[in-house]
Computed example of a mutant assay.
Amino acid sequence: MNGVTVQYELVDEVISYLDLRGGIRILVDGERVNRLRDEAAHESNREWEPEYVGELVWKDIGGVVRVATRLASGECEVWEREQLDLSPGMGVFAFEPVSAQDLVVSYWIPAGDDIPTVTPESGRGYVVRRCQFCRSVRDTAHEYLDEVEAMGIEFGRSAFEEYRTALDELDTALETCRETTPETRF
């Protein structure tokens, strides 16, 4: 089965948690899920693109933690799609359990003028182990929280408590991830 890793990139010089800009990416066996066709021609004023996607990294990591908690606790049924909508126009990560243990992770960008398109592999997605994905999210989210707490951010520190609570919920859900498999409705 494929190995999955969730990673993030942050910009420097942060004063408030709202300044926490950057992107996230998901790798499956070292290959990015968020790949674009003709990436060399893709222009962006965001230094982390196209390797990482999104802009409001604090929002995106919080969103992927919520998705992982639902997946780890078995709340998301087989074939029920969970989505992480990145900043407008930045794309969507989709997560869909396809069996009790397997999850398809894909990336797409809503259609529009001058919008880059994703590779067919990214749009179709990659099969990974559900609990392995959730553990990777947990590890990355803890690393992220430790890093931003160490930055000495002056404003919005109370938002870190929300992250800590969400991470506690994910940690608890992961304790029984293998036993809390998604239900199948036919």
Rank of each mutant, 00 (worst) to 15 (best):
P182E: 10
L71I: 13
A150E: 13
V78W: 06
V57M: 02
T176S: 15
M1C: 02
L10K: 09
G63H: 11
W108Y: 12
A150F: 01
L167I: 14
E49D: 09
E47H: 12
H142R: 13
V67N: 12
A41W: 03
A94H: 01
Q101L: 09
V14K: 08
E39P: 08
Y8V: 06
S16M: 04
E96V: 05
L56A: 15
Y107I: 00
E9V: 13
Y126V: 04
S158R: 07
P120V: 08
S122H: 04
Y107W: 02
Y17Q: 11
D60H: 15
E13F: 14
R157T: 12
D29S: 09
E77L: 07
G30H: 12
Y52R: 04
E143D: 15
A141Y: 04
R124M: 01
V64H: 05
S44F: 02
L36S: 08
M90A: 13
A41Y: 01
G125L: 06
R157D: 11
S44G: 11
G91Q: 07
L71F: 04
H142V: 14
L103R: 01
V92L: 06
V57R: 04
D12H: 08
W48Q: 07
T117I: 10
D113I: 07
F160I: 00
S122L: 02
I109L: 13
L84A: 09
L174P: 10
E55C: 14
H142Q: 13
R25G: 07
V64I: 15
L145W: 03
L103Y: 06
G23Q: 06
Y17C: 11
V92Q: 02
I61G: 06
R129A: 14
D60A: 13
T184P: 15
S106K: 00
R135P: 04
T184V: 13
W79I: 00
S158H: 09
Q7V: 01
G156V: 05
I26D: 03
D168F: 04
P97M: 09
M151I: 08
W48V: 10
Y52D: 03
Y144L: 09
A173M: 03
R138T: 01
S73C: 11
R70G: 15
Y17N: 09
